[in-house]
């Protein structure tokens, strides 16, 4: 269900917590599973739950509570644009609108070629670099301008 590499990474996370607290690794395990699978299907969540000795519904609670988990398929590049107040003051909403127009999709939609999904995010703790966006939950792009977005899109394959 998950590759040996992913399981090895999950095992490393489990080792961070005291004996008998495997559940503590659920957030990282779900993140690792999502990295491998692209999104968290219910089967994946159940697999992770069993791996950690949790009830599937408890793992689902976690997967649906934290908004960086994707329970539906997303494009190869998930772009999460912060539009919270500090970013908004510096054009976060404009950045989102620019991307919508450029990619021809609305919020929470994926381009027909499966390349991009557009999401609106909450504060990423980087307001000094506003407006910011996050690529695939991992890479943060700061001080977005039309040019910077164009360059970023060109870089993503």
């Amino acid at each position: 269900m998950l590759t040996p590499e992913s399981l090895a990474r999950i095992d490393r996370e489990i080792a961070k917590y005291p004996e008998g607290q495997r559940q503590s690794a659920v957030m990282s395990a779900l993140a690792i599973a999502q990295e491998e699978k692209g999104f968290l299907a219910h089967e994946t969540i159940e697999y992770v739950a069993h791996y950690l000795g949790m009830k599937p519904i408890a793992a689902l609670e976690v997967a649906t509570f934290y908004n960086m988990y994707d329970l539906k398929p997303v494009g190869r590049h998930k772009l999460t644009v912060c539009t919270n107040l500090p970013c908004m003051l510096s054009g976060g909403v404009h950045a989102l609108e620019y991307l919508q127009e450029k990619l021809g999709i609305g919020l929470d939609e994926t381009t027909p070629d499966g390349k991009y999904t557009l999401k609106q995010g909450e504060c990423m703790g980087a307001c000094g670099d506003a407006p910011v966006l996050l690529v695939n939950n991992r890479r943060m792009c700061c001080k977005m301008t039309p040019e910077a977005i164009d360059a970023m899109l060109a870089e993503l394959t």
Partner: peptide, 14 residues
């Protein structure tokens, strides 16, 4: 369990 958060929280089985 209660999945989701905020006013969209809901009780469900897996």
């Amino acid at each position: 369990g209660m999945v989701n958060r905020n006013m969209h929280a809901e009780i469900t089985t897996f």
